[in-house]
Design a protein around this nucleic acid. Sequence first.
DNA 1: CCAGTATAGTTGACCCGGTCAACTATATGG
DNA 2: CCATATAGTTGACCGGGTCAACTATACTGG
Lengths: 315, 315
Amino acid sequence: MEHAIEAVRTFNRFFTRHVGAIDRRFLDSDLNLSEARLLFEIVRRQPVMANMLQGALRLDRGYLSRMLAGFEKHGLITRERTGADARARAIAVTAAGRAVADAIDQRQRAAVAQDLGRLGRTERNDLVQALTRARLLLDPASPAELALRPAQAGEVSQIAARQAMLYAESHGWGHELETLVAETAAAFLRRFKPGREQCWVAGLDGVMAGAVFLTDEGPTDRGHAARLRLLHVEPFARRRGIGDALVDACTGFAREHEYDRITLWTHTVLESARRLYARHGFVCIASDVHHEFGEPVQGETWEKTLRDAPASDQP
Amino acid sequence: MEHAIEAVRTFNRFFTRHVGAIDRRFLDSDLNLSEARLLFEIVRRQPVMANMLQGALRLDRGYLSRMLAGFEKHGLITRERTGADARARAIAVTAAGRAVADAIDQRQRAAVAQDLGRLGRTERNDLVQALTRARLLLDPASPAELALRPAQAGEVSQIAARQAMLYAESHGWGHELETLVAETAAAFLRRFKPGREQCWVAGLDGVMAGAVFLTDEGPTDRGHAARLRLLHVEPFARRRGIGDALVDACTGFAREHEYDRITLWTHTVLESARRLYARHGFVCIASDVHHEFGEPVQGETWEKTLRDAPASDQP
DNA sequence: CCAGTATAGTTGACCCGGTCAACTATATGG
DNA sequence: CCATATAGTTGACCGGGTCAACTATACTGG
């Protein structure tokens, strides 16, 4: 904990200086930081009452009033009485105002771009990942876009890594589990059947927030089976429906590719996973204690039937 | 690139607000932000001339002078003429001044701690990793402490993931290489011989900045061999001697455990790796083109003799 | 050894961004 | 129709910070 606090403070100091340097460069425009923010907000919301702006930006009414008067004087905005309320005036941005906002926006982009210019593609990507991850960790409510995508280079192993870390933390499953998931990931890569199997990564603003594998188990006496493996959702991304989205992707894919059922292996202690599978129509068909993770644990086999096994598959 | 810029700007906005919230809480002390920074600097450097402080904190001389006068008036510092220069006075912090600095420090720690309190252990660790990584990416010169340590839970797979990502980016080696490294990592975990084998992670302020495996190849006709595998150094951590430190760890370990030689496999295109191995006394003993990464590439076997193979190992 | 220039620190004047509270004008609810 | 609330404006003021002029001492080259 102490170490974490020190690391965060070190970053805070660093980043304050860093952002300060960027801001200073863009400061040589006609607007100061507050004015720029205000102008952007007007562009975003126009037509808008001063009222709204004050609430959104938490500005002092007097200060806001003066800034708006200044904007109007410089021809950046217009204010017009509407029928609705004779006290207030609807604020709209003029072409000139929009131009100023665009110019500032461009300058900020350029400053950041210059900053990123030193980095290679991988480093840039690492940076974006790190920053986005930090943001989502610090503020779980932070808006972020969810998108499923196939795994990119290295992500299959990264999934194994995250599984090992998360289970070590939450359940103390150590070297044995780590070995198993690493082997599962390696086998997935080695035996990958394109078009029949898939690994989905759930990206929150591009950051891996969860993942799942679907593999081909081959024909059995009860039809052709797919297997759902290594499902996980990152702690920082929980309560966003990512588990559901991943399971949906699996069942959708399995249906499209005419699998007859999906099986999976899970554990009695993994309550939320079990609820997730139940919600999606899986049922537990077997359960037994095993020792694959060191300590004895209760494993469970779950299954979901997609359609009755066709006669042709049966002997 | 556009996406990266947007992500960085989103983070900047977020973090400015975030730090702002923390700062506001600590604002209800007698000192403002500049004064607090100044006081900390005095504590760190005392005894010190105003001169130095001005340079270090880039403060206006007049502003600095007034702040120092205020500090002296409130008994936080003392200023005394020294023989050296009759214009300047050496500034030292008083017990009271130190107490004020400590109090502010404590309050900041507490604010950050409260912020981190919501997070679990893994999330906190992820956050520290993400922030530190971001800092080192944004400023490669940022001071950071290097320490080698054995791999923690999940890190072996994470090494495989990073290898796959980095080689995909730098050399376009894709699925085949990814599969190979994943299998290598899984095999390392499965066949791990404690005390005879090791995986080192180079941590820069705790963040994985590189890694290497040393495995037992068993007895051969030329003595007992160790094998160095999956060496990598993160792009953000290059030019800090991490590669050297990792190779040193391997050779030291191999010597201690009485291996007779170390072998490794590398590639002709990996110039800096080859130079690293050569620097550490490895020599290339074989070379041939293989097709394991899709495209044909020139592979090389290198070796370093640690001691003459003992007679007993020979038939 | 002195003139000229540089440096350490102080002080007064001032500016900018921002807050506070009083004020006008309109809206709304009982 | 009155009391109260809300939209926006204005004057007074404050803190943080900059700028330039000033004093006092130090250094450097002739």
